[in-house]
Design a protein around this nucleic acid. Structure first.
Lengths: 217, 217
DNA sequence: TGATTTTTATACCGTCTCGCATAATATAAA
DNA sequence: TTTATATTATGCGAGACGGTATAAAAATCA
């Protein structure tokens, strides 16, 4: 029931001498552990006991720190977005040819979808496909996720057109939505257990279709 | 607790004078009602009481007719495939230009994903995204679903190449996987509540990308 | 009519579920 | 030391859960 603290990394920032009994957990790592469990079994099939075991916090502590199960799910989803949009932003910030940018983008996504031993897929996709989508607040978050991705991909293709890598006649919206569709497909197939090599082949095929095959001089 | 019988249609085929008390339900319609509920809330969040209420069968009858909840889910999934692959087969049988074939294919899919009032998405996608994917038998069914769709789409693009609608250099596997990815994306966005008009625009954009824009003579 | 068969209906069992009430524990402040 | 505060730990309680045992009901067969 005690959280294993990371060896060495002794929460260096701001030890403000809180007043009562000290916490036996770090909220951040607990949230990460809750997220990992939700990604495995989804909202409905994950019990508070499961979450308690996974985080090393007992139920009252969980409740006190994060609220009820629904709130914890929402926080986990926000954490998911924060964690993994970071990696994607790197790919967007770098000045890369569109083909290479997309290749890296899908590669980073596969890292997220295939963490460690077991395949997990995309948490947004899991949420949409669950009954949680009936919750207006959760639905709004998911729609924002869709929209953000479309916008980011749209920017990629627009700058590719500006750089002359794609013809000016390119349909940005169509390219973006096919590129995001490919991402969702990778997430699903990853979770279904299809090996990474095959997923990379799928990604490459999609890139060829989006940008034209290889570099034709 | 009694199933409403369809007015008029009085189960005309084969009334073989069964021996005991007659059933108060028709297994086929009950399975359809169970499927509808599973499509709404998924496996874990759907209780046997919910299923009992939806089918009009009490729990022991449900159990006797379909086995436990897992078996009922599997039967519902098979029913889903049977019901909706039929409509797709029509589109594949007809002798159509590839663009029109794809347009009708996505149109039929949207009928499935947006039944009546509430959006539902794709049951295969829901199953992959749930914890049910951990069940080997269910996982095998889902993988077969992926594979069947890839094969069917592959056939579409191959015949399009044979008919000269697409260049012989077309990458059949890449076209198929992007076409199926588009389908999954439509399923997700449909379930998230995006209106049909927008989904049709997405489908059209994907078709343009797959087959080249419009009919260039 | 009465016996047999098949299904429905009710009720129950043990387990799990979520959320919280209460008590014990560990720290800082006085 | 004592007091105040913040957390952990235990465990309770009402209800939901999946599954099944048992009894009542409705049909056919003899």
């Amino acid at each position: 029931m005690v959280q294993k603290k990371k060896a060495g990394a002794e929460a260096p920032v701001a030890a403000p001498k809180r007043r009562g009994r000290p916490r036996a957990y770090e909220p951040d790592v607990a949230l990460g552990q809750a997220l990992a469990l939700f990604r495995k079994t989804g909202f409905a099939a994950t019990s508070l006991d499961d979450l308690s075991a996974a985080t090393g916090m007992n139920r009252p502590s969980l409740y006190g720190a994060f609220g009820d199960k629904r709130e914890l799910y929402i926080r986990s989803y926000q954490r998911y977005r924060e964690d993994y949009s970071g990696a994607a932003v790197e790919v967007f910030k770098a000045d890369l040819p569109i083909r290479e940018r997309l290749r890296r983008f899908y590669d980073v996504a596969l890292d997220v979808y295939l963490p460690g031993d077991a395949p997990r897929g995309c948490f947004t996709v899991m949420t949409v496909a669950s009954d949680a989508i009936a919750d207006p607040e959760i639905r709004a978050m998911v729609l924002e996720g869709f929209s953000d991705l479309d916008k980011a991909l749209g920017w990629c293709f627009r700058t590719a057109v500006a750089k002359g890598e794609l013809p000016a006649s390119a349909d940005i919206a169509a390219l973006s939505s096919v590129a995001s569709a490919t991402l969702y497909s990778l997430a699903l197939r990853a979770r279904a257990g299809i090996p990474r090599k095959q997923l990379e082949t799928i990604a490459k095929g999609a890139i060829d279709l989006l940008c034209g095959p290889a570099k034709a001089p």
